[in-house]
């Protein structure tokens, strides 16, 4: 099961940058994909990267981020002014930010008008208790070794 959690702009409107990032990372660490209304500032994006880097360990290997926002190309002066006024009044609500844990989201491919989200097969359903590929391989090895040992003992016993 893949869980998407929506964070409306009203929830982060009054938060400062570090607490916004903490909020996003808290959700991501629960192996959920965050869909946030609005976009982070460039400084907040770097802060998010720095924070994820400082929190990386065995079970948390990073995030995949993508921001989509309407491009402001060839706007007339009046329209520009109108947009700026709206931004000033209601905040930067334009666009959507997607943040997912790298253990679930393999890649987010963004073309100008399209976003493709590739998940790791079988990982999304495992939730937070999932094991890494290496640990799973090790576990299967151990199991096979144990099986071999038991079969050997049985054969000796029969003899």
């Amino acid at each position: 099961m893949l869980t998407l959690q929506f964070i409306p702009y009203s929830e982060i409107e009054n938060l400062d940058s570090p607490s916004r990032i903490d909020k996003i990372l808290d959700v991501v660490k629960q192996n959920k994909i965050v869909l946030m209304q609005g976009r982070l500032k460039p400084e907040e994006e770097t802060l998010l990267i720095m924070e994820t880097m400082s929190q990386i360990h065995k079970s948390f290997k990073g995030v995949e981020i993508c921001t989509i926002y309407p491009e402001e190309k060839d706007l007339q002066l009046f329209n520009k002014f109108k947009k700026e006024m709206v931004k000033f009044l209601i905040g930067h609500r334009d666009g959507v930010t997607i943040v997912g844990p790298s253990s679930v989201v393999k890649e987010i491919r963004r073309n100008p008008n399209k976003v493709e989200l590739f998940t790791i097969p079988g990982m999304a359903s495992m939730g937070s208790s999932r094991k890494s590929t290496v640990t799973r391989k090790k576990a299967t090895k151990k199991r096979t070794v144990a099986r071999k040992k038991t079969t050997k003992r049985r054969t000796r016993g029969r003899r």
């Binding site: 460039p42 994006e45 921001t67 963004r110 073309n111 100008p112």
Partner: peptide, 17 residues
């Protein structure tokens, strides 16, 4: 590779800011 990756956008956005 695909240039539309978020890392590229973030770096360039920060430099522009």
């Amino acid at each position: 590779e695909n240039p539309y990756s978020q890392v590229n956008v973030t770096i360039i956005g920060n430099l522009a800011a």
